[in-house]
Amino acid sequence: MAVRFEDSIFMALNKSDKPDMADRYQTSKLLGVFFIRALVEQIQLGKNANQRVIMNMVNPGLCDSGLTRDATGLQSAFFWLLKKILGRSAEVGSRTLIAGAAAREESHGCYMSECQLRDLSGLIMTDEGHETQKRVYIELIGILEAIQPGISQNI
């Protein structure tokens, strides 16, 4: 059995047979939250801990942006309707980015929604989530090191 090659989140996500694309975007964003949280912890432990860079995450909400440009058919119609009813304009959504760019130290490693700090919830806050966060970090650093050896020196 070649399953040992699949004993990896990123490998599993690169399987072209029966790929679960319906929630791929969501998965990519969850991986981002995991990685940033872990990265912030690692920076704090490392040689650059005193050279502050505030890293935060912002949720723009549902916006009339080009993100769903690749959707087709029913899915495309669904997004169109949802955005018509609930969507923010791109300008209003972009205010969340400006809020992140202006946010203070307390936003470091944190998630913001509606231009305010918000607690994360769901899998991330569970023990299983914490374990997964470690795995995501180790795997992704491994991938980045393969792309650019030595890159983790920047942490």
């Binding site: 969850l30 860079v53 980015l97 769901g122």
Partner: peptide, 16 residues
């Protein structure tokens, strides 16, 4: 300096 990552509330999706 600030490094701002555009995240999304959809991270909460449990299907992952």
């Amino acid at each position: 300096p600030r490094l701002v990552n555009t995240s999304s509330e959809v991270y909460e999706s449990v299907s992952f």
